[in-house]
């Protein structure tokens, strides 16, 4: 028996890994501009280039302790436009359970759910959507991948009434799911899906969450904890 066969196997695996990592580093090199920030939905089969993850917020001065002590459950709210604009993201964390929502206010939206712990965000959504990132120092940063696209974001912490709102209802037999992101400057973006068909959402009243969708009065509530009704 060829006694160096196993060694060759190991080296072949190592070589394959080296090639793949090299390709990754090349493809994901900084400077890959996003060609079409708003036009998501069309599933591009190739991973679009994105710069390596931004500087970790964890490197912020240790003088101000972030609200996320390792032992404590994380409660936080971040919202802001994604890098390059074209979409807005909000992440609401309640006792370590994170819900993220990205939408363009027209017809594209992604809901994700996961965890926020020890400065790291890990969320997944329908159709293989993923969000990975870090948080601390009053902001959250990371990358969201969905529908063959990726978005990078650095979102500042916000306070109510800014944040993430959601409404679910059944209107005349149609399942309605709406998501809204309210930003500190009072502007809001949202998408309502009726039986899976997304469209622009009418504005909500941030004070009460009241909104009228297809003639039906709904109430959007701040997202706290795991998603339900979807």
């Amino acid at each position: 028996m060829k006694r160096n066969g196993p060694l060759i196997t190991l080296l072949a695996g190592l070589a394959l890994a080296a090639v793949l990592i090299t390709v990754n580093l090349t493809v994901n090199a900084p400077g890959g501009a996003d060609p079409d920030p708003a036009g998501f939905g069309a599933a591009a089969p190739t991973a679009t280039a994105a710069a390596p993850a931004t500087e970790a917020p964890a490197t912020s001065p240790p003088a101000d302790p972030p609200p996320s002590e390792p032992a404590a459950k994380v409660n936080a709210l971040w919202a802001g436009p994604v890098d390059g604009g074209g979409a807005t993201i909000a992440i609401a964390v309640t006792d370590g359970v994170a819900v993220a929502y990205l939408c363009d206010g027209k017809k594209a939206e992604v809901w994700l759910q996961g965890t926020a712990a020890a400065g790291k965000l890990e969320l997944t959504g329908a159709k293989g959507a993923t969000l990975t990132g870090t948080f601390g120092g009053g902001k959250a940063a990371g990358t969201l991948a969905a529908a063959g696209r990726t978005w990078k974001f650095t979102a500042p912490a916000v306070k109510k009434p800014s944040g993430l709102y959601r409404a679910t209802a059944t209107v005349r037999g149609a399942k309605v799911v709406g998501g809204w992101i309210v930003l500190p400057n009072g502007s809001q973006v949202g998408v309502v899906s009726v039986d899976g068909q997304p469209g622009p959402a009418p504005a909500i009243d941030p004070a009460t969450g009241a909104v009228t969708v297809d003639g039906a009065a709904l109430t959007a509530t701040p997202v706290t904890g795991a998603l339900t009704g979807n």
Partner: peptide, 18 residues
């Protein structure tokens, strides 16, 4: 290593997770 969230894809699949 800070996860990049993305990696090169293989043609014929809808995404890297697949």
């Amino acid at each position: 290593h800070t996860p990049t969230g993305v990696s090169v894809n293989v043609a014929g699949f809808s995404g890297p997770m697949e």
